[in-house]
Design a protein around this nucleic acid. Sequence first.
DNA 1: TCTAACGTTGACGTTAACGTTAATATGTAG
DNA 2: CTACATATTAACGTTAACGTCAACGTTAGA
Lengths: 157, 157
Amino acid sequence: MKTYKIDDVARETGLTKRTIRYYEEIGLMPTPERSEGGTRQYTREHIDHLLHVISARDVLGFSLQEIQDYIVYARELSGQRQLYPQIQEPEQKLAKLREMDETLDAQLRKLDEKAGKILAMKAELEQFRARVGAGIDLLEAKQQNHTKDIEMEETGK
Amino acid sequence: MKTYKIDDVARETGLTKRTIRYYEEIGLMPTPERSEGGTRQYTREHIDHLLHVISARDVLGFSLQEIQDYIVYARELSGQRQLYPQIQEPEQKLAKLREMDETLDAQLRKLDEKAGKILAMKAELEQFRARVGAGIDLLEAKQQNHTKDIEMEETGK
DNA sequence: TCTAACGTTGACGTTAACGTTAATATGTAG
DNA sequence: CTACATATTAACGTTAACGTCAACGTTAGA
């Protein structure tokens, strides 16, 4: 399997090397394998994972802690469970699934709320921009007239 | 005009008194009038202003600096210009308007980006939730079968 | 094999966004 | 007028999310 060094990952994700190590440190990313000498060897999955984290961080303004909750669920559901402890007891599993369902539902409601407010803010900003545009047109027209007068004065001399 | 003390504002906005003073300190809110003794006297506009700031902060995850840009423009455009210095020179005004236009454009692009990513994330979470739901159904069915023999009277439901 | 470029681990520094505390003045109910 | 809740400024403390630096080991190409 192809592996990547931390500099490659930094280039592909736009994160700094420090940030990548930090995310590993706080458990936001599964720890990669190491080479004989201790160099971290990332896989494509690590990169995808980070891109996911970045998206959640930037777009949602979630704290890294909140993102972690989300990430853990995503991992548990996408088959890469070997990275996190697996639950065997059916009753516990059911309880866990119900908990996840609730959390997902709450997050979805949050997202809907955010989407709605983003639309409202967009409308407001667009209105502002229309006014600014009108102001620019007005002043440009004035300047046109002004320079026209000057030209006439000059030619009249 | 009715005025509010800082504790009233804190109650209505959910912010702490410290945060309210901090927002004033960093220029996120127009400085309120003071009583003879120096007590801040807020108006309803201050409260509405703060609610706006909170919305931008919570929902969009903007930094307070980014919010400030937005707020300043909003103020300058909504007629309450006495709170901020007014530009008189037409050329400076035109330059300022062009700057505002650019900033607004940039913020609108950001908003579009966020909206897009929110939709993507929503789709993903919904997919997760569907899987979780399937898992719950499965386990519940198993449990049903298991308890069917024992709890005969409930099978009639 | 040598060396330059890159990687590693501490460990301390920084910035935003407030919290907390202290010392003091102000506003108000009785 | 007194007492007591609430206000003020000033200053230092805190936490998250990294930045930066030093000292040192690793990797890869000529």
